[in-house]
């Protein structure tokens, strides 16, 4: 299915974000169709995390609009966006430290579960366990979130995001600091989630992973889009090479 042939899941138009005099995002527009595996790359400080903060609602934007499933969500609070179906993980993991892994997921199920399917406490617990099992964390359900290893923390953040039954999952450098076998593990997980009709935006520095994962890649530099297209096209782009490899 060619992108553009159907209504986009997420439409970002003319988004600009300033911090004082510093322009973090400069007139960024992009459409992401449903089901796409979307890679977001760019050097440090190029605006990647700012962009997803604008999508998930941590930052308000002015001017510019964010449209999700044909609804303007520019002014909605983050928790409402989560309930509409936008979930994310964090670059530096932010678990609920006083809780167990299971309780971390229960927060998502309590506040943003699909209430048309999940009604009872028992159903919430079942859903929680099935997500944990899929993520390979079932044995850690009753372990405190502070006792997890780095890769387990990354998985738990994705699991917590999944508990809010997202249509769009934003993974913010979920592989940073992991060994190569762990990177493959998380990558396989994200692939399997994408197969279940979840649109995924992946922000990553590990180029191989992004290229393997993404159907479409966008590269930001200094708050502007410098390239967008298939992984091969973007990698062949001269400005991308300059931005990444330096001159």
């Amino acid at each position: 299915m060619a992108p553009g042939s159907q209504a986009p899941l997420l439409r970002i138009s003319a988004l600009t974000k300033r911090f004082g005099g510093f322009i973090a995002l400069d007139n960024v527009s992009v459409d992401i169709p449903p089901g796409q595996r979307f890679g977001l790359i760019g050097p440090n400080g190029s605006g990647k995390t700012t962009l997803i903060n604008c999508i998930s609602g941590a930052f308000r934007t002015e001017p510019g609009t964010v449209t999700f499933r044909d609804e303007d969500i520019t002014r909605l609070a983050p928790h409402i966006r989560t309930r509409r179906g936008i979930a994310r993980s964090f670059q530096i993991p932010r678990p609920f430290r006083s809780m167990t892994v299971a309780e971390n997921l229960m927060v998502g199920l309590d506040f943003a579960a699909d209430t048309s399917v999940i009604v009872s406490e028992a159903q919430r617990r079942d859903t929680m366990m099935s997500i944990l099992t899929r993520m390979g964390l079932a044995s850690k359900a009753n372990v405190s979130a502070t006792k997890l290893s780095q890769v387990e923390l990354r998985k738990m953040e994705l699991a917590r995001a999944m508990a809010t039954h997202p249509k769009l999952l934003i993974s913010d450098e979920a592989m940073a600091g992991l060994s190569s076998s762990e990177v493959d593990e998380v990558l396989d997980l994200l692939m399997s989630l994408a197969d279940q009709d979840i649109t995924i935006i992946m922000i990553e520095h590990i180029m191989q992973a992004v290229m393997r994962f993404s159907e479409r890649v966008m590269c930001l530099e200094a708050g502007k889009i410098i390239a967008i297209g298939t992984p091969d096209q973007v990698m062949a782009n001269q400005r991308v090479q300059e931005a990444y490899l330096g001159t």
Partner: peptide, 23 residues
């Protein structure tokens, strides 16, 4: 659920918002 939400936002307010908690 109120208690669970409060506990979540006590731990991390932004993470709680992004997990659907109306902080």
């Amino acid at each position: 659920w109120i208690g669970r939400g409060l506990q979540a936002l006590k731990d991390d307010e932004l993470a709680a918002e992004c997990t659907g908690v109306p902080t």
